[in-house]
Computed example of a mutant assay.
Amino acid sequence: MGHQDTPPIIELDQVDKRYRARGRPDVVALRDVTLSVRDGEFISLVGPSGCGKSTLLKLVNGLEPHTDGTMRFRTGTEDRRQAMGMVFQQPLLLPWRTVRANVTLPRELTGGRLRTADTRRAEELLDTLRLGDFMNSYPRELSGGMQQRVGIARALMHDPRILLMDEPFGALDAMTRDQMSLELLQIWERDRKTVLFVTHSISESVLLSDRVVVMSSRPGRIVSVVDVDLPRPRRLSDINTEKFGAHVDEIRRLLDSEHELATT
């Protein structure tokens, strides 16, 4: 069954987000955002800096309230946050805890006493992310890419249906970033979680996604949604194909056109 046949797990209908400050005009971060995300779909958000991509993730995760519009979730849980895992731009690891202990932290915070099954799951996730030999290491002993893998393992610890990723590879060098993208695709192919992925890299968005949401300058709104017509599983060599280049060019044209409108 394709994504087009599955019901939406996230629905945003004309969602606005305004920040209010005393004595100053409201700051409109998002305006009239309408988007349906189907269960198991990989969606990337691209757009200029400050356009509200990260804010949109916060609204979905419940970290920020939306101002206007409607948000609907079909996560199968009363508290939608229980169905979500969040990966931030920086891994935000606790330096005094080992890699394994950083991964199990969410379970300890929500479930109290750590069970044997929890430790086993953490170790399985770390093995999957090629960190099995570093379970007892500390964050300072890991490279940037390895630290981000720990952050991904932590977000997956409670087996969320939805994975929210806020430019998780932005601080990594190009080679490490490519490798992390491939590892993320492998995890997604295996588990088919719903992913909302923020990135500034057009190529990265095309390589990873089923659809790419192109956003405008602030106030952020959806300019277009591009369907990525590339077979899966994806490989880095796909970047060199004509169809891949056509998708990249289409998204770049949309961003360039929006930039010209914003500056005129």
Rank of each mutant, 00 (worst) to 15 (best):
F134Y: 15
L114H: 08
D68P: 01
T128D: 07
G85N: 10
E141T: 01
L63Y: 10
E124Y: 05
L105E: 04
D127T: 12
L131V: 07
G111K: 14
G132P: 00
Y138N: 04
G112I: 06
G76H: 11
R100P: 00
L126F: 05
R72F: 05
S137L: 00
P65D: 15
R121N: 07
E141A: 08
A83P: 06
G111Y: 09
F88M: 09
Q89P: 10
L105F: 15
L63M: 12
R100E: 14
R74D: 14
M84G: 03
P139K: 07
G132L: 01
L114W: 09
L63G: 02
R107Q: 13
Q90I: 02
V99P: 00
R120Y: 07
P91A: 07
P95R: 06
Q82P: 01
T70N: 13
D118N: 09
N102F: 04
T98G: 04
T119Q: 15
P91C: 11
E141G: 03
G112F: 09
Y138W: 15
T116C: 02
G132I: 01
M84I: 04
D118G: 04
G76T: 08
R115S: 12
R115W: 02
N136I: 00
R115A: 15
A117G: 04
A122F: 03
N102K: 05
E64V: 14
G112E: 11
L129R: 00
A117E: 15
T75Y: 07
L126K: 01
L92Q: 13
F73N: 03
E124W: 03
R107T: 11
Q90S: 12
R140C: 05
R107F: 06
T119H: 06
R97I: 03
